[in-house]
């Protein structure tokens, strides 16, 4: 789905379809997706077939993604036989996304976390500030171009 329709779609899903529970807002960064192919025995998402491996020795690249970041809204309706729904929005670097806080207030902190760790801006969010990292932290750590950091481990035996 593209971003301008998100606010309207969110309202529709909540009011008409009855998904009143926002379980999670997850962002994912797909920079570098598909550059490393995998070969050998892998299965399709539908299941594994031991007698029918899928690549047959050739390199297989995963399907390309439309934009760099995906934002997945996992929804649930509190009904007995309710299924789960995932609304997925694709954004590029710097592109803002309308906030769903007026629809599901719980998205407040989830969107702050997406901003903090990925740098995805939310238009209309009442309090878009860093939540998990220091307020003056530079960069957005969960992006793929941010290094894992840490220190090299020094062993006591080596010189």
């Amino acid at each position: 789905m593209d971003t301008p329709r998100l606010a309207e779609a969110a309202r529709h899903v909540r009011d008409e379809l009855g998904f009143n529970f926002l379980s999670d807002v997850s962002a994912a960064d797909y920079l570098g997706w598909g550059e490393v192919g995998v070969s050998g025995y892998i299965a399709t998402a539908g299941g594994r077939d031991l007698n029918n491996p899928s690549t047959r020795g050739l390199q297989r690249l995963p399907r390309p993604k439309p934009r760099r970041f995906s934002l997945s809204y996992h929804l649930l309706a509190l009904r007995r036989d309710a299924a789960r729904v995932r609304l997925q929005v694709w954004v590029d670097e710097g592109e803002p996304v309308p906030t769903v806080v007026p629809v599901w207030p719980t998205a407040d902190w989830h969107e702050r976390e997406a901003w903090d760790l990925f740098g995805i801006r939310f238009d209309g969010h009442p309090n878009l500030s860093r939540i998990l990292l220091d307020d003056d932290w530079d960069g957005h750590p969960l992006r793929k171009d941010y290094p894992i950091g840490g220190e090299p481990v020094r062993f006591s035996g080596e010189e």
């Binding site: 892998i42 399907r63 997945s72």
Partner: peptide, 10 residues
């Protein structure tokens, strides 16, 4: 290897 895809389990 885990096949390509995404999943959300609760």
């Amino acid at each position: 290897r885990v096949p390509e895809g995404e999943v959300y389990v609760t």
